[in-house]
């Protein structure tokens, strides 16, 4: 009996010592997931995801409590980057991210030149001056909708990007089940 107790005791002590040493010397640093994700998000704090800012959204994404397609201005490439970083698979076929990105557009007939929109725009995509016509620069607009919220005459709208010869793409071929049978 005494051999049994002492053997188990020595075993337990030795293994516990190994564990303690491993915890000390082989420790894995916590990876800065949240920081990486924050860097990937646009950073315009538009609020379309439901969180106050991109920082909070990054934490939620890192936790896994929200799905990856939560940020509309990020588009498809953001989802791909997030999926790659978090090591998860994302199935594009059934999510709503296949809708085209939206851009802000000023209806010039109803613009009063109040300057509220370009003060709100986080990317300086709206040009204008007090009492002058405002206009949106498409290449700088990422669809955060902050300008639409503050416009007093509601002349700002979100419109879909027009398909031109330069941004037309081939569609994905339909799966067999959705194809009509040849005659």
């Amino acid at each position: 009996m005494i051999e049994g107790i002492s053997t188990m005791a020595i075993l337990g002590f030795t293994l516990g010592l190994f564990l303690a040493l491993a915890a000390r010397f082989l420790k894995v640093e916590a990876d800065p997931v949240v920081d990486d994700i924050t860097a990937m998000l646009p950073g315009s704090n538009c609020g379309q995801c439901g969180f106050a800012g991109c920082g909070q959204a990054a934490e939620a994404v890192a936790e896994g409590s929200v799905s990856l397609d939560i940020c509309p201005p990020g588009g498809k490439s953001l989802i791909e980057n997030l999926a790659a970083r978090l090591g998860v698979d994302w199935d594009f076929s059934n999510s709503a991210t296949n809708t085209a990105p939206m851009l802000a557009y000023v209806q010039e007939a109803t613009c009063i030149g109040c300057t509220r929109c370009f003060k709100a725009c986080p990317t300086d995509a709206i040009i204008g001056a007090p009492k002058q016509m405002h206009s949106v620069i498409d290449s700088a607009c990422n669809g955060c909708t902050l300008c639409v919220d503050v416009c007093p005459t509601e002349c700002l709208q979100m419109v879909e990007v027009q398909t031109t010869l330069t941004n037309w793409r081939w569609n994905k071929p339909l799966p067999i089940s959705q194809l009509p049978l040849a005659a």
Binding site: T163, W168, W170, N171, P173
Partner: peptide, 8 residues
């Protein structure tokens, strides 16, 4: 998006 037939 228009869906034209692809080559070949």
């Amino acid at each position: 998006m228009l869906k034209p037939p692809s080559s070949p």
